[in-house]
Design a binder for these strands. Structure first.
Lengths: 148, 148
DNA sequence: CTGTGTGCAAACTCTTTGCATAAGT
DNA sequence: ACTTATGCAAAGAGTTTGCACACAG
């Protein structure tokens, strides 16, 4: 299994795409570059489209959705349903949990320390664990001087 | 004048609502009854509205949403974002994880065994853990048959 | 009676889709 | 060339909202 894991991959995007049997189109290359050249990322389709636009890459929102879904299908990224409204795409496909900062909506990976939960959980008869999603919701600690 | 509406038996739902400072309206009582008299449940607004309708309770979808959101706010239920599209409301507000059956979309509580994750995780400086959501995605075991 | 909740439908957001055009191999 | 992806806009799904009426306290 190729673990095109997260961050270290600095290989050309087109090689990456070909490795997954995907045609190397301009927008796929551009989006892949945005996704995989900055370390692990958590983006919404919306945000990625905006980024692409800012980088003067042509990529309609519909295409960004198509590409992200495609990438998710082949395992290049992973879709997360954390807050319910927007789907967040995570470029880190390894087993790990997430901190969710409720105030800002930001997301941060949890170093997969005590997260060997998959091994501690007994799946029901006849079922196997596909993956385990762990989301730790955080709130800024209310200052010692502040009530409520 | 004590125009006792209908049922004469006990109204735990009414007491429950009052306990949370909520006005005991007909639909809140009805929905609360549906939610809390059958043990722990996982419902979508849609499904609950259908149930209410089947039970000949008048409750528009908008009201079901309002009521569920209200219940979630005061802590009577908890909203879950598991699959991204629909929000699922869980009547079990205690700390526990969920099995998610990918084929059917069904959800089942995980007996809070090794799920003391909250205690194993170190939140970032200045933040406190609000809650930990654990979703174990399951797929029916393929290939190898079950012990027969 | 007074204020709040409800119902309806329209509005909204996020995401998907159909079809003509453009691009990749 | 032949196939597949893209772009646009419209359709869809889920959820929220504004306003008149009904109901609870």
């Amino acid at each position: 299994m190729f673990a095109v894991g997260s961050s270290s991959a600095h290989q050309p995007s087109r090689t990456l795409l070909e490795k997954y049997g995907l045609r190397a189109t301009r927008q796929r290359l551009g989006l892949a570059k945005l996704l995989f050249s900055k370390g692990d990322r958590h983006v919404t389709a919306d945000a990625l489209a905006a980024e692409a636009s800012a980088a003067r890459m042509a990529a309609s929102l519909a295409t960004v959705y198509n590409v992200l879904n495609l990438f998710a299908e082949v395992g290049l990224v992973r879709g997360l349903a954390i807050d319910g409204s927007k789907t967040i795409f995570d470029t880190n496909t390894s087993d790990h949990g997430h901190f969710f900062f409720e105030e800002t909506g930001e997301i941060e990976d949890i170093s997969a320390q005590g997260l060997n939960i998959a091994e501690e959980i007994e799946p029901p008869e006849g079922y196997e664990i596909v993956r385990v999603d762990v989301v730790v919701r955080l709130r800024r600690k209310t200052g010692a001087s502040l009530p409520s």
